[in-house]
């Protein structure tokens, strides 16, 4: 197990390097001049421009810029934005917001998705099963930002139940955005649970459980559900990382000062350092949670051996 984890960790390094270089290259190598963008309409003197270029290593070849950047990263230096603020500061301030949003989303995803999926899977073809099927299809079809507006309009403006903007009301502020961020995953979890459960109900060992004279609740609750939930639990786990990276739309619509919103703002302002720093962090989380899930999987399923 230890060796497996070590091997996995080792394999994530090239992926992390590759992904961060990809982002770095996109932000710094492609056309578009960050200095010009920063200046906007104000004319900058040649001298000021040159000074800025030097400060941000913009005259080095791309690979050298990247190496310098990674060198900084390894010392905990994510660079600074154009106003001189450390990117790490921004991250430290905004990460908790995004983490809370992702947590709210995962809770909704698990609670609603699992419940719906289990009830549908147990009674395949029932009214509830069809309801879940139709509802999840609709949810998957409506783009997240549209869903955001619908939620704001219905629950915020019309019913006045939840705040629709900002995080001024504590956990309460995270309900709507959390639901919206969770929506797609929630639909998948419901469907995944449903198919997984239905598949497991057909397994031979479920028939054995019935042949053993176990109560129906035990046959389903213990001998079917446990196995069916393995893929679902791992899906949800891996999704935490993905949700954080996916928060850009939700945070923008709900005006939530998290990392996604920061990426959005910095991309529009061409704040390369902030974009690269935060998106690299997203990739890191994504990889990290996938790793966690692979380990979790080994704990849940004894057939998996890591040697």
């Amino acid at each position: 197990m230890g060796r497996y984890i070590a091997r996995r960790l080792l394999l994530t390094i090239p992926v992390l390097i590759g992904a961060s270089f990809l982002i770095f290259a996109m932000v710094y190598a492609l056309p578009g001049d960050p200095i010009r963008a920063l200046a906007g309409d104000r004319p900058l003197s040649e001298a000021v421009q040159a000074q800025l270029r030097a400060e941000y290593n913009l005259d080095d070849p791309l690979w050298l810029q990247y190496l310098k950047y990674v060198g900084g990263l390894l010392q905990g230096d994510f660079g600074t934005d154009f106003s001189g603020r450390a990117v790490l500061d921004t991250i430290e301030q905004r990460l908790p917001v995004t983490a809370r949003l992702a947590l709210a989303a995962v809770i909704f995803e698990a609670l609603i998705g699992l419940t719906a999926g289990i009830l549908a899977g147990i009674r395949r073809g029932s009214f509830f099963d069809n309801l879940v099927l139709v509802t999840t299809t609709l949810i998957v079809s409506v783009p997240v930002f549209v869903l955001g507006f619908v939620a704001q309009y219905v629950f915020g403006l019309r019913l006045g139940l939840f705040p629709t903007s900002g995080i001024g009301e504590g956990w309460y502020s995270y309900v709507l955005p959390g639901l919206v961020l969770a929506s797609l995953s929630l639909a998948y979890v419901a469907r995944l649970t449903r198919t997984s459960l239905a598949e497991n109900l057909r397994q031979d060992y479920v028939r054995t459980a019935r042949a053993k004279g176990l109560k129906p609740a035990v046959v389903i609750g213990k001998h079917t559900l446990r196995n069916s939930l393995i893929p679902v639990v791992t899906f949800i786990g891996a999704d935490i990382g993905a949700l954080m990276g996916g928060a850009i739309v939700t945070e923008t619509i709900f005006n939530i000062p998290g990392l996604g919103r920061a990426v959005y703002d910095s991309v529009l302002r061409q704040e390369g350092a902030v974009v690269v720093g935060i998106v690299t962090l997203f990739v890191f989380f994504y990889i990290f949670f996938n790793l966690v899930v692979d380990i979790l999987y080994a704990l849940l399923d004894p057939r998996i051996r890591y040697d």
Partner: peptide
Amino acid sequence: MSMIFQDALSSLNPV
């Protein structure tokens, strides 16, 4: 009454 099946691997719960 009790029963045993052809494929013991799939008939036993893997977890």
